Computed example of a mutant assay.
Amino acid sequence: MVWAGQGESQDPLVDRRIAAAAAFEGDSEVAEARDMARDFLTSAQSEHGLPVSRRAIGVVQLVVSELVTNARKYAPGPCLLDLEISDGAVQVGMWDSSSTLPSVGEANPERIGRHGLEIVMAVSRDFRVHREPVGKRITASVLLTDDPSADAADRHAL
């Protein structure tokens, strides 16, 4: 894994992106990608004071896990993961070398596996796929404060 974005200066967030990126090439690196996502959001919370719900951290780890797993399974060579916070959400970007666009299978309760893309689309605020000169890029957006249980607790408190 190659990691970028760590150890940068801790200047105030004036015209500064909160972002990290890494390249993954082995199947065992899915766990490292999940850890990277968790560490990135924990840092955004502790070092930059951004509100990040526990649910959002879990959802981002799930999205990262599914996207890295699919990239490693269906595309040769490395895949590139980038995370960036903007507009109250984290943008999870995944580039891989395959130009074949992913597709969601027909609903089939007997199908075992191959639900990763459906899961990512269901938990993301926004989901995009587009071809690049080499390969494709998938981008999913997850709200930082996405916590339905907190919303329910707030409603009960009223």
Rank of each mutant, 00 (worst) to 15 (best):
V92M: 02
D87V: 02
P12N: 03
D39V: 06
D151Q: 14
Q61L: 03
R111P: 03
E25N: 05
D154G: 08
S99F: 00
R34I: 07
A33F: 06
L62R: 12
A122T: 13
R111A: 13
D154N: 13
S43M: 06
A44I: 07
A21E: 12
S53R: 09
P76M: 09
V63S: 01
T100W: 02
F40C: 03
S97L: 00
R54K: 12
S103Q: 13
Q6L: 13
R55M: 13
R114E: 14
I57G: 06
E8M: 06
A19V: 15
L41I: 05
K73I: 06
P12L: 04
L144W: 13
S65D: 14
T145I: 10
A107H: 06
A153R: 14
A89Q: 10
T69H: 13
D15V: 03
G49D: 03
D154A: 15
T145H: 02
S99V: 03
N108M: 06
S98I: 02
V52T: 06
L158M: 12
V129K: 01
V129P: 00
K136P: 00
T139V: 15
V92D: 03
D126L: 05
L13H: 09
T100Q: 09
M94W: 02
L144F: 15
H156F: 13
S86W: 06
S53C: 13
V60R: 00
S86E: 15
L81F: 10
D35V: 09
I57P: 01
D11L: 08
A71Q: 03
A20S: 13
L41A: 05
W95Y: 07
F127W: 15
I57S: 02
A22M: 15
P148Y: 12
P76I: 03
A75F: 04
V120A: 08
D27S: 10
G113K: 09
G5N: 10
E29D: 14
I138E: 02
L80W: 05
S103A: 12
P133F: 01
A140C: 09
S98L: 02
P51I: 04
D146I: 08
G116K: 14
R17K: 10
R114L: 05
L41N: 05
R55S: 12
S9C: 01
A37L: 05
S28A: 13
V30K: 03
W95L: 06
V104K: 10
V52E: 02
D151S: 11
M36Q: 09
A153Y: 09
T139H: 01
R16I: 14
Q10N: 08
H48C: 06
G5I: 09
T100F: 00
S99R: 00
T100A: 07
A71E: 00
G113M: 14
S53P: 09
G116Q: 10
V134L: 06
T145W: 01
P148A: 05
P102F: 06
G58C: 05
R114P: 01
A75D: 04
Q91K: 13
L143D: 14
R54H: 11
S149N: 06
Q45D: 08
